[in-house]
Nucleic acid binder design. Sequence first.
RNA 1: GGCGGAGUCGCCAAGUGGUAAGGCAAUGGUUUGCAAAACCGUCAUUCGUGGGUUCGAUUCCCACCUCCGCCUCCA
Length: 464
Amino acid sequence: MLLQDTLTRTQKEIRPIDGKTYRFYCCGPTVYGPAHIGNFRTFVLQDVFRRTLETAGTPTLHVRNITDVDDKTIRDSLAANLSLKTFTNLWLEKFHHDCNALACLPPHIEPSAVEHIPQQISMIQKLIEKGHAYPSDDGSVYFKISSFPNYGKLSHLDERELDLGKTQNARANSDEYEKDSISDFVLWKNRRPEDGENFWPSPWGEGRPGWHLECSAMIAEYLGDSFDMHSGGIDLVFPHHENEIAQSQCACGGSFAHHWFHITHLLVDGGKMSKSLGNMYTLADLEAKGFTPMELRYTLIGAHYRKPLNFTLDSLSASREALLKIAKAAHKLATNIGSETTSLPSAEFGPFLPAWQALNDDLNTPATLGCIFTTLRETNKLQGNEAAAALAALNRILKALGITLPEITKETTEIPPEIQQIAETRWTARTNKDWATSDQLRDHLASLGWAVKDAKDTYELSKI
RNA sequence: GGCGGAGUCGCCAAGUGGUAAGGCAAUGGUUUGCAAAACCGUCAUUCGUGGGUUCGAUUCCCACCUCCGCCUCCA
């Protein structure tokens, strides 16, 4: 498959370096609160990427960290009067629940930052030894950007005019950590009162690791100095990923990530999602409004990953109908297969080849969905083996997208006897062409929360 | 200010130097006593504005307008 690479700004073929397993790292959540739909856009797209590779027959090694020690987790755990571990576990559990509901495959390795502090300390030591980092008087350690000429390649710093002077003044006025150059970033933070009991011993005194370092240390541990891909939200390009490159290449050598895959942020109602605007949705929020996780997933893959996705509640309703439409078409195919089908489901994409090609063309999920509907119209009349092949192909595509279809078989809900009684009475009236009574009873049923649909020789009751 | 992105039907959203996918909504028909459901159709001479290049541009170039994101923590 072809995929855009942030560093080179070109589309590159996705192929494992070692020719076997595609090994990639995703920046995971900071577990200090519920993940919102913006977070999940990133995780869902990464999941589609992985599923597409695996569908094509390439095994993957998916590593995604948990950031469970940083400013926010410490601040909020103290505010909640819980230990850091207890606090972050709470949100980690919630995160796993949401991921599962959204059909995101669990990463093969999910390292916790707080459990890799020794690795982080040894990486800092290596950086100091090689002259890429320096301790300050207060016991913090900084990365020396001037020691890494390649700094800024990913975010194309040379093309930007970073007003470092302005930033410097702002920092100088606050009693922030000391550093030689304003752009130097912290690797190890000295112990401070507001950290409570959350500090660890180090050669530079008690303190805790800097955020950027966590990922570098865990990557070195599980993927080594060179691996296939690094992925995350677009906001992480600078400075987070830039800093990771600097730390990792200086400490370990190697080429670090061969491909950078960044997912653009989603917008809500055309603007930024924020708590103050009240449009920061979590999965639980949407479920409370009656939507399903799958409807959210469908919505999240409804726009190309490099374009802003304008999320609205209406789009969730549209997704619901669209999913239903696919489900009905799939059901029709299944019905059309009949009993005389002899061919085994093939591994080919058959009539759904255009959909598969779109997916492999820079992960164009919206085009893929479009192709599915177009093809579905043509497969509508297929029978027997052809229907079987089409259905198998459709299922392969849906699996790559991580989409599961809603049940369209009639749910056998319990019908209360009194409701059944009214319906019977109405049916009798209807059979006698007593339309007035029939319609009146239909309205009555509706007011009781039941819809009645007439067929030729029978009727159907369903809850509204 | 710098960097990056976006402006395509009421909404969401692909795409392309050769005459605009798809979904939702809407709407017509078949069906129905009427509905609902289902099925079959219809639905952008037009792609922010103004120029330019071209046989031809929505697609390339220039200018402008509007919007969004980043440059501090952020998926």
